[in-house]
Nucleic acid binder design. Sequence first.
DNA 1: GTCTATACCCGGATAGAC
DNA 2: GTCTATCCGGGTATAGAC
Lengths: 217, 217
Amino acid sequence: MPGPAKRGRYHHGDLAAALVDAAIEVIGERGVRDFSMAEASRRLGVAVSAPYAHFADRDDLLAAVAVRGYQQFYAAVVPQVEAGLAPADRLAAMARRYVRFAARNRPLFEVLYQAGLDKAGHPEIEAAEQPIDDAFMTCVNAISGGSGPTAEELAWALEATAHGYAMLLLDSGKQRSDEDVERTAEAAGRAARALIKSRRLLSDPADLQQPGAPRAG
Amino acid sequence: MPGPAKRGRYHHGDLAAALVDAAIEVIGERGVRDFSMAEASRRLGVAVSAPYAHFADRDDLLAAVAVRGYQQFYAAVVPQVEAGLAPADRLAAMARRYVRFAARNRPLFEVLYQAGLDKAGHPEIEAAEQPIDDAFMTCVNAISGGSGPTAEELAWALEATAHGYAMLLLDSGKQRSDEDVERTAEAAGRAARALIKSRRLLSDPADLQQPGAPRAG
DNA sequence: GTCTATACCCGGATAGAC
DNA sequence: GTCTATCCGGGTATAGAC
């Protein structure tokens, strides 16, 4: 098990990376909102001023955590060796992995979607996020031909659905069992299939709805 | 325009309610994370200790905000006079309103889903949330008969999807235009229709998937 | 129910030595 | 790159008077 020791005295190693680790640990225990530079420093046994040699401020460190988060997210969600699968199968698998990643990496997911980071102020974050969207788009492009929704519309629908399942799963605060996670992941996968199958309904038009049906709301 | 004055000196009115208003205002400007009792007090021109006559602590005030949030959410999302509409139409309308509410009441939505409130510790919150789930269930029950997914499964899928669209819309941090909001709301509504139409795919079984397709992921 | 005053703690961030 | 020391500001929460 390589990498610097996570605990106890720590001096003159790769502090920047160690801080990211420590941050994830702290966030896991207290949530992003209660994360602090000081606490992370303490856990590493370094002075509270040490982190400022590597990160401009608290948000800068959190941004680094977010970048790592998106990298792991990408690695966890995107199919690597599944070129053989049909696009719909790959997308369903991606939806399942999306939910599993959120559940199994709650601290990272929290940083990505609840830290309220100013992504505009930290372009690195958006850059790290991009590949995930791209992966969905690539997969969707292998499906959506001719009429029906644009690739963007379908990809967006699939991401939104996976995201929604993930968020609602995490929301209840309660620790969820592995069975809960798996059940939710499977549900997200099936929802992805359903959306793909009925994707024609995703494209704009009022004329696909019951003619004469009032557009209430 | 009834209700206590939101600004300036304020004495001996309904402080509890005024604090909730002030909290929403503060959250709108600085986000939940940076909300503080002290700031809310300042805006009302009362002593920083005054709130503690009405709320045990910060989280207790936020819980009150959450309760109001769910009440308004319910009122905004649930169909009132649309008994005439087909269930699928009502559910699509609910999905649209779900997204619109999130976009137009960002501060409240933030408290509901990003404040990290301990719902277990504040049963009032869950109680206020319940009617929304119930409304989805009621509507779904008018649809899902016989084979196919349980009402729970379908309701969950619809809520997750609406939720996902809403969260991703808000996520980018950037202010979204009314057109963005409306486009997203419509997309969520169409996704709801698509899920309803293909709801048979939402029920468990591996045997609805391509026979022989490996269940990767 | 609200005020004044205060005690307390903690986090952010900097200066300057090593 | 890290440490020691320190300043500063801010929020939470309580005590006791009115």
